[in-house]
Design a protein around this nucleic acid. Sequence first.
DNA 1: CCGTGCGGGCGAG
DNA 2: CTCGCCCGCACGG
Length: 437
Amino acid sequence: MEQEDSASQNGETTSWDINDIKLPQDVKQTDWFQEWPDSYVKHIYSLDDKNAQRHHSSWAMRNTNNHNSRILKKSCLGVVVCSNECSTPDGRKIYLRPAICDKARQKQQRKCCPNCNGPLKLISCRGHGGYPVTNFWRHEGPFIFFQSKGSHDHPRPETKLEAEARRSLQKALTVVSPTSPRLKKTQEAESLADEIQSQEALTLHLSGQEDYISPSNFNRHLLDNPAQQHMISTSLSLAKNYGFGRSPYLTEHAQVTRSNTLCDKYKDVGSRGCDMGSQSKPSVYNTYVGYEEPQSWNKNGVLGRNPCNEKFCNDSAFPLTDLHREILSSQNCIESTLQHVPTVPHTTKAGYYPFRPNIGLYGEDFYEGKSHMNYNSSYIPPSLYHLSQEDPYLVMNTVHQHSLPMKGTEWDSEEERKYPSLDYCNNEMFFNLCPLR
DNA sequence: CCGTGCGGGCGAG
DNA sequence: CTCGCCCGCACGG
C-alpha cells in the first residue's frame, strides 16, 4: 500500500543494483526512511535524511568489511533471546537488541534474562542463504541508495533507541546508587544496573505507580543532590521522549523545558517512522523457537507495519506494557487501566507512519514539526500521566513510598546478588533512587 | 562504554 | 574472484 509512491518503486528506478557503476539520477521522489527494512528491498533516500546518513536500522546491524569504501555493507546480528524461552505474564517473549560491538555483545550474552534470570542466547540471523541479512548503503549524488538482501528469520529486537534508553536509565541508577546504604560498592551497583538494564523497569514504575502517591508525601523526600536530580530528571525526560509518560496536561513549554536536550539528541534517530506497533504479534512470537512461522517476520514489512492492524502499539522487545501490567497487578493496584492506542492514520509514504500518540495533545512542533520519535508505545490514562509529569522527583518519592516495605534482606544472599530476581531488581532500584530513605 | 566506520587479513567456495 | 568474518584502530557521543 504505502509502497505505491515509493521512489524505489517507480519504473525508472527499480532496476538498479547497489553494485551498478551508475545509479539512477533521475529520481523524482525519495523514500521515507525505513526503520525495519526486510526482504530484498531497495530504497532511495534523500541525502538530507539523517537516518539514512547514519545508515541506521532498527535491526541490529554491524558493519561488515566488503573492501569497498564506496559501498557500506552491514550484516544483521539477529536477536538476543532467553534460553528458557520464558514469557512475560501476558505471554510475550524477550527479544533484546544484540550489542553491535563484538566485545559488548559477548558481555551481553553473559548477562541474564531480565524476566526469568535465565541465560541469554544470541539467535543469529540466517535470512540470506544461511547467512545474515545484509544491508548496503551507497551515497551517490543527492541520494543515498539502500539495498537489503535476505529476509530476517527472527523476531525484531528492541530498537536502538530503546537500548539507549535503558543504558541511560542504568547510568542514572549507577550514579544515584552509591548513596544507598544497601549498596556499599559501586561495582555492585553497576552489576545491578546491568541486570536491570533490559527491563525498562524504571519507566514502568514511574508511569505505573504515580497515582499511588499520597499528596501529603509529595515533597518529603526530594533528592538533595543536584547531580542526582539532574541525572534522574534526564532519564525521566528520555523516558518521556519515548512516550512513557507524556502529560496531556502539561504545557508544551513545560515539556520542552524538561526534555529538550535529549529530545534534540534523539529527535532524528527514530526518524519519521512511527512503527511502534510492529513488534506485537504475540501469537507468533510465542511460538518463535523452532521457527514455526518463519515468514511472519517478513510479513511485518507489509501487513504488520500498519499500526492500524496491530493489536498493540509497542515496539519494545521487552514491552513496557507487560511489566507495567505485571507491576500493577502484583501490587493489587490498577487493573486493566492500561490501554493501547486504538487507531492511527495510514501512512502516506513507504514505511512512514506520521502518527504519534498524543500528537494532538501537546503540539506538533514539539519535535520541530516532525514526528521523529516513534517510541510512544504505551497509552497511559491521563490520570496516570499527570503525576509523573508534574515532577520527576515526586515520582521518586512515589516509588519510595510504595517500594520500601516490599523486600528487606535479599542482599544477604549470594545467589540473589549474582542473579537478582526481577522483583528484587526493581525494588532495589527504588532503594537506589531513594537515598534519603 | 558503546556505536560506527575503515581497512588489513584470512579462509572457504 | 567474491563473500563472510575476524581483528585492530580511530572517532564521537
